[in-house]
Design a protein around this nucleic acid. Structure first.
Lengths: 174, 174
DNA sequence: CATAAAAGTAAGTGCTCACTCACAAATTTA
DNA sequence: TAAATTTGTGAGTGAGCACTTACTTTTATG
């Protein structure tokens, strides 16, 4: 059974992700969820409270995605898994990731850099693979992934297999 | 002499770029520009009209920046100039570029892909330089640049010289 | 210099916003 | 089962929103 609280969270995520935080009214969220507007405030105190609750929910998915890479021992697999990140991202948790990218620009304050541990892990991997400038390589790859993710989430289609094959050959993987 | 119309354009750009389009009220813009709110509507018809006017102004800078690359004959210089793009971007027309990136997420509708001619030029350059997959290389580089620009505009500092040197050696330039 | 056009403003307009309040129904607990 | 707590709602509330109107001042023009 799905509670009304969960319906609000779901509607909030969808609307914030597609229309933006400021542009989405609490009234619209309530209508979409099929509940009274006041219930939003009973459960989440205010609009920002709802946003924070949505964020905390998604944070789990975030950590799961990253920890899979952080815990990897084989440096080649670290690079490979990192490259595959934005390819999955297009389908899985699509909405949550759109929200993340959107809010990075809309509300700069609630955006601590979550990619830091990934970049450190990548640096370590490139070092083990004897790259000349592992830190620069890590930064380079992470910038590329951010750009690709951004384009993907904004609706730009691309050939996943071709892109993956290209990157794997570029980094001498598998 | 700076006209009141220009003051509105300037204030609008600054506020839209830092706070976002939806979150910025016409009242706030008028106060920042030191004019009456109604003057905005006299000059630009409505809020969206002001945004479009700001965009058209910035479009000039955009074209200048790109045409410098498009008209370049030497393929190595094409790649070199492309790499240098996000490095200048941090200082020159900083505010306009923040607006561009912000609005790409906030108002998806007014975002036709302006990078297409650049990507085509890059593909051509990589082909001349005998890269195996010039189209993929062009897309790869443009994604990286988008990611770097995004991080730069959001305030993430980085060593310009070091990054440039790294990229130049990666692409065997100069 | 007279007149028309352009630039500028103060004071609204109706509407939507996030949020509150008083109260009712459902659920839990003693 | 009675009381207390939680979950839910409809009907507001003031504030801020984009925008209009009626009017004045400045500038350009014949």
């Amino acid at each position: 059974m799905v509670t009304k609280k969960e319906l609000i969270l779901k509607s909030g995520l969808e609307l914030f992700a597609t229309e933006g935080y400021t542009a989405t009214s609490t009234n619209k969220i309530a209508q979409k969820a099929g509940v009274s507007e006041s219930l939003i405030f009973r459960h989440f105190y205010n609009k920002e409270g709802l946003l924070k609750a949505i964020f905390e929910e998604g944070e789990q998915a975030f950590k799961a995605l990253y920890s899979n890479i952080i815990e990897e021992k084989d440096p080649m697999m670290v690079v490979a898994k990192t490259i595959e990140l934005p390819l999955d991202l297009a389908t899985e948790h699509h909405e949550f990731w759109r929200l993340q990218f959107r809010l990075k620009w809309e509300l700069q304050h609630m955006n601590p850099d979550k990619t830091k541990p990934l970049i450190e892990k990548l640096t370590e991997a490139f070092a083990k693979l004897n790259y000349k400038s592992p830190a620069q390589e890590a930064r380079f790859l992470s910038c590329y992934l951010e750009g690709l993710a951004s384009q993907t989430l904004l609706g730009g289609a691309f050939d996943e297999k071709e892109t993956k094959a290209f990157l794997f050959s570029k980094y001498n993987l598998v």
